[in-house]
Every structure is written in C-alpha cells, then in structure tokens.
C-alpha cells in the first residue's frame, strides 16, 4: 500500500513558500503535468540509482513515484500516476537554476513516459525538415546548432528533441526552444550581440535568448551522431545500423531506466528510426575557424542521401 509523500506544507525551512514561475507551469501543463512547490519529502523504503547527473530514488511501495535529488540544490517528486510534480528547493536557489532543473532534467524524463523517443539532440531546420545532431553533453551539439543559426538556418532547439513516428515517417520537435552555450562559443559565434541569461548556478553556460524558433514540428530527414572525440578532418559517413541504434538509445531520456516495458518501446522505436531515417557519423575538429566547413559537409551529406 502506498504511503504518499506529504505535499500539504510547501513551506521552505526558512518559512518562505517557493513559487514556480507561471510560464514553467504552462509548459508542463501543455504536456499534461501539474508542477508546484512542495515541502520536504518524507519517504521510506527507497531503491535508488544514479544516472550521473542526478540521484534518483523510487518508492518500493509506489512504483509510479520517483524522487530526483539534485545534489544539495533541490528535490523533485514526480508522481506518474497523478501526473504531479512537487519541487522542494534550497533557500535562495536562483530562478535560472530552478528553470534549468525543470526544463532540462525533469521535462524530458516525464515526456519519456509517453510512446515517444526523447533524445539528447540539437535540431536544425532545412528545406522544411529537420536534421538532428545527437551527442553527449560537451560533444558540440549546441555550438554546431548555433553556427547554423548564425548562418541563416532556423534553430529548433539544442538540448532535447521529441521524436514520434507518424505513418512511415518520423516527426521531431524540440522539447522547448533553447540555445545554451559556453562563453567562448557565444563570443566566437555571436560576438557581443547576444542577449544572455545564465543557465544555472552550477553550470558555466549561457542561455542565448530569442534565437530559437517557437516549438515547431518538422519531419526528420537525417540524423548525425557526433563523435565526442575531435579529429583533424571533417568526416560525415553513413553509420552502421546497430551502432547507430545504440548511440540513439544511449542519448535517450527515461524516467525510470529499469522500466522494462518502456525500455523495449525505446529499443523498437530507435530501431525503426534507424531503418527509416538516414543516419551518419560526424567527426570534426573543434576549431571555430572550420565551422563553415563542418556545416557544408553536413548539408552535402544530407542532400546526397
């Protein structure tokens, strides 16, 4: 029998009540979830795992409920049964950090409960369709995406992309439109023109405002798998099927990685994606002066598919 975590008192230890920003509430409402502040969670009998960014705990007697512990910053209580999210934050945590935790860590994971694939990717539009650049954090997705945007392409998003199969094709859209860059990339690509906002207290990244399009769906025309290791030459080559499928799965979000049903769904979806959409391996030098060359190689490979 489930023992519910107390939500009735949303006061923080200093007596204040934390308010979730209205636009964040709207974003989650659009996905069918309610988000609000919560008091300190009381819980027992937890099993846990860590995915390297956050420590996650599940209630033994409430399998639909998960606690996400973000270091000493915040605890997010996600109830998949009631589709409610309770946020308990440490005092004086910045609004930007709260926004980052909710949009970049929680939202992709709760969306992954649906029959969709949510992948860690940047999406750029060309000729009415989207190509996705999939890679781990620090692999250069955002810098490449920014480079395309600065050269006239429509940027759809740079962090998480929702992929859904429709008939014989796949549709992609950014979980939310974003572009987040380190300071050196901002300087090299946008100079002093960019309107910036810090991403989070603990990240050395800036959110570039007003560069990503409103959330828009586009047919997925190609996928590029970014090699995290820099190379001397720019190389875009067709990816082997099984490795491409596994690379996509490795960059997919999940609320509960031990959920076997959803894991099988992701496997089937990633397999169908690879069977349907041209997929390439991308290796390139990490040199701002050669980004134009990288862009050209990507566009050439996509156009020749």
């Amino acid at each position: 029998m489930c023992s519910p975590v107390s939500r009735s008192d949303a006061r923080q230890p200093d007596g204040s009540v934390f308010e979730v920003e209205a636009d964040l509430i709207d974003i989650f409402a659009g996905a069918g979830w309610r988000v609000g502040s919560a008091g300190p969670p009381k819980c027992r009998g937890l099993r846990s795992w860590s995915d390297g960014i956050v420590s996650v705990r599940r209630f033994n007697d409430c399998p639909g409920r998960h606690l996400f512990l973000f270091s000493d910053m915040a605890v997010v209580d996600v109830d998949a049964d009631s589709r409610e999210i309770g946020l308990f934050v440490k005092p004086r945590l910045s609004s930007e950090t709260v926004r980052h935790l909710l949009l970049d860590q929680i939202l992709p994971r709760v969306l992954a409960l649906e029959p969709l694939l949510i992948v860690h990717a940047a999406a750029v539009e060309t000729d009415g369709a989207a190509f996705l650049m999939i890679g781990s954090s620090g692999s250069g997705k955002s810098t490449l995406a920014a480079s395309f945007q600065a050269s006239g392409y429509e940027l759809l998003g740079d962090d998480a992309v929702l992929i859904q199969q429709r008939a014989n094709s796949f549709i992609g859209r950014a979980v939310y439109p974003s572009l987040r860059l380190r300071e050196d990339s901002v300087r090299e690509i946008f100079g002093s023109k960019a309107n910036l906002r810090p991403v989070a207290d603990y990240l050395a990244k800036w959110s570039v405002q007003n560069v990503a399009a409103d959330i828009a769906e586009r047919p997925v025309q190609a996928i590029l798998l970014i090699d995290p290791n820099a190379s001397d030459a720019v190389c875009v080559e067709p990816a082997a099927d099984a490795k491409a499928c596994m690379a996509i799965l490795a960059q997919s979000f999940a609320l509960d990685p031990t959920d076997s049903i959803r894991a099988r769904d992701r496997l089937e979806c990633a397999g169908e994606l690879v069977r349907t959409i041209p997929t390439f391996n991308l290796t390139y030098p990490r040199d701002y002066g050669r980004l134009a060359e990288v862009r050209a190689a990507i566009i050439d490979a996509i156009s020749r598919r």
Partner: peptide
C-alpha cells in the same frame, strides 16, 4: 530488434544494450 543485417539486444534487468554485427 533487427536493424538491417545487424541486431541490437537489450538485457532489461541489467539495463544493458548490446550490438551484434
């Protein structure tokens, strides 16, 4: 899950994916 001439395996309890050529 077969992809082309290759296969991706999932060991659910371990959370491990394995690719076969």
């Amino acid at each position: 899950n077969a992809v082309g001439n290759e296969t991706v395996l999932l060991q659910v309890k371990r959370g491990v994916y394995y690719g076969l050529d």
